[in-house]
Every structure is written in C-alpha cells, then in structure tokens.
Simulated assay, not measured.
Amino acid sequence: MNAENTPILRIDSVSKTFGPVTAVGGVSLDIRENEFFALLGPSGCGKTTLLRMLAGFETPNSGQILLEGRDISPLPPEKRPLNLMFQSYALFPHMTVRQNLAYGLEMERLAKSEIVRRVNETLATTDLTTFADRKPDQLSGGQKQRVALARALVKRPKVLLLDEPLGALDKKLREKMQLELKRMQHEAGITFIVVTHDQEEALVMADRMAILKDGKLLQCGSPEEIYEAPADRFVANFIGVMNFIDGRVNDRSVFEVPGLTLPFDRASAGAAALAVRPENIAIAAPGEGLAGTVAEIAYHGLDRVLHVATPASPIPLQVRVQANGAAAHKVGDALSLKIDPAKCRLFQ
C-alpha cells in the first residue's frame, strides 16, 4: 500500500449500545493521512456517537480504534492525539483570540517562544492575525468559527474531529466557510473527520465520505462515487435529488412501466426501481420519448426544475434544464422525456 493510501486511523468492527439501542453496529472504516473525511447520515444514524468514541468520550462495547496502528480505545480523551471541535465553539469570552489559542499550549507547559511561534503560524493559516487582540464578543460568527478551528489546530493533533462545525452559520457564510475549511485542512496537513447531516456540505468538502443509517455503514467512497453510483435506494435518495420509477424487469432484461421501456444488461426479472437524476433526463423531440405534462416549474437561477407528470410514475419526475437560453416552458406544456439507461441505477 502506498503512503497516500495508508490509513492513519482504522475503525475496526466498532459497536456501541445504549441499553437495548444499538447506536453503532460493527462499523469498519480506514481513514487516510491528510484526508478530509465526512461522516454523513440522518439524525440518529450513529455518526455523532462514532465521533465521540474516536474522541474518547464514549467507550466501544466491541471493536478497536487504531491510530497509526496503536489501539487508542482504552485511552481517555486527554491522552489521545486527536482534538474535537464543538459546534458551540466554547471560546473563553474574557480572553483575546491570541490568548484563546495559547491557552492549551500553556497547559502543556511548552516554552514561551514555542507557544508564540505556533500561535502566530496558526493565526496566519486561519487568516486571523488582524483579529488576534480582539475578544470573542467583537467577532462575527464566521470569525468565531475560525478561532475555534485555530485553537484546535494550534495543538497539532494527528486527527481533528469536527461535529457539525458550520451548523451555527447562515447559508451564505456556511458556503464560504466550507471552502475555507477545505483550504485550512490542506494547509495544515492534518486529517479532518467531520460529522454533518448536510449532504451538500459533505459533497463540497470531503475527499471521501461514509453514509450511515441506523448505526450501520451503507457506503464509503468519494463524493463522485456515491453521487454517481449509490449502493442502494436509501443512499440514492439521501444524496442529492433522485427520481424513482417503480416497475418491473421482464425476462429479456427490459425495464417496463407504462409509457417507458429501457433495456439493461443482465438485469434480473422481477420488481425493480429505476433511479435517475434530474440532470440526466433530456427533453426529446415530440413523440420520441416518455410523454409528459409540465405540472410545476421551480426557478433556481442557473437552471429550472420542471416537475413533469407522466404515466410512468404517480409522482412527477424532476427534470433539470438550463435557465440561460433555454426555451421557456410553461405549466401545462406537453413534453417528451428521454432517459438513457447508462445514466440510471436499477435497484432490485
């Protein structure tokens, strides 16, 4: 295995129960050095419990957590070379930004010259030098978020754990800070593991991501892999927008629903669900595809999403078309839709 793919952190068959409830059930993951890794899933899926076990605030009932090959499961939080950044930031209000960063290093009894050097380096990396002498109540939400991150980074953990780090920010600032987090992770050269329920956030920031549901790992891969090739219907529905058409595959491997037939290679005969992204449905010439009628139009700036009623599904299909230069569609317009089986997933 080359250095780029060597796991710095190995989660090996880790489980955690609370009474009769299994919060995490036999999860195994390898997380690489200098990777931005996202744990993603709906509320109650086990992602925060898993993060707390990595940090040492919860103890696994079974399994191991290996950091650079060493089992850290028995170690208390303060003995682990990992740092957890809380969503609430938890900054000391009576201290300046510089003092907040220096505090943890002072507790480690580092030399004053080393503390000053590391604090200044981290202030520069996180673009906080200008605000070094301000107190938290003199900072914006985005600046406080960066201070909390800087305070974690200054201790140079091998792995930084982030629990919904952008949850307290408004949408526009969240989008800006997603790119900032990615930049800072790259510059700091530290492995980041972030817990989020925001699929868009994970797609933007993560090198790889793991999808959890009911304490189980459903799929792990790059954002592109998970978006383009979801492992099952839940993942397909959870990541991005997906149309589902429920139908049957006949004994000739052809998917059939009213108004639509699509051939597949080696599909098993029986009930099946066709999954296709809105951007992968094209508008065809009249009479050359699945017939439909525009039921609703949603304008998104760069594109429009047409909700098209068809005989293939009781739910209108979402079709994404470019707004700029596109023909103006109106509610009630008749359309023909072309679906390429190569751009679909078939769940059976």
Rank of each mutant, 00 (worst) to 15 (best):
L51N: 04
K155F: 01
A342H: 06
Q322L: 13
L123W: 09
E187H: 12
L337E: 07
A271M: 05
D251R: 13
Q348F: 04
N5T: 15
Y103E: 08
Y89V: 02
D71Y: 13
D265H: 14
K47E: 04
K135Y: 07
A111C: 00
E225S: 12
G289P: 03
Y299A: 13
T122Q: 05
T129L: 13
L66F: 05
I8Y: 06
I211Y: 10
N83H: 04
L91P: 07
G25W: 04
D265R: 14
I245V: 15
F255V: 03
F238K: 11
M85F: 00
D207F: 06
I11V: 15
P136R: 08
T125E: 07
R80P: 01
R109T: 02
N120D: 13
R134S: 13
L337I: 07
G189F: 11
P76M: 12
F131L: 15
P311A: 14
L9D: 02
V331G: 02
M177H: 06
P74C: 07
V321E: 11
A102L: 05
M107E: 11
F92Q: 04
M205F: 03
K79S: 15
D170H: 09
A312C: 07
V116M: 02
M184F: 14
K172H: 10
A148I: 03
K338N: 08
Y299P: 00
V147M: 12
G270P: 03
S140I: 08
N5D: 15
N34P: 00
L335A: 06
Q199E: 09
M53E: 08
E187T: 15
G292R: 09
N34Q: 15
R183N: 09
E279A: 14
G69F: 11
D127C: 03
G221T: 07
M205S: 02
A229Q: 14
G240V: 08
P314T: 05
E228H: 12
N324Q: 13
A323Q: 10
I115H: 07
D163R: 09
V21N: 10
A210F: 11
A55R: 06
I339K: 12
P165R: 02
T17L: 06
N61F: 01
E78Q: 14
M95C: 00
A269S: 13
L179I: 14
A323Y: 08
K155V: 12
R52L: 15
R174I: 09
T129P: 00
V119C: 09
A210V: 04
T17I: 00
D137T: 01
R266H: 14
R320M: 13
L217I: 05
C220A: 11
F244G: 03
E33W: 03
T125A: 11
T22I: 04
Q322Y: 09
R10C: 08
P93M: 06
E175Y: 02
N250K: 10
Q322R: 14
L260P: 05
A285Q: 13
P341I: 10
G189I: 08
S62R: 14
P7L: 09
S88F: 10
R252A: 15
G189T: 09
P165F: 07
S15V: 08
K171P: 01
P93N: 08
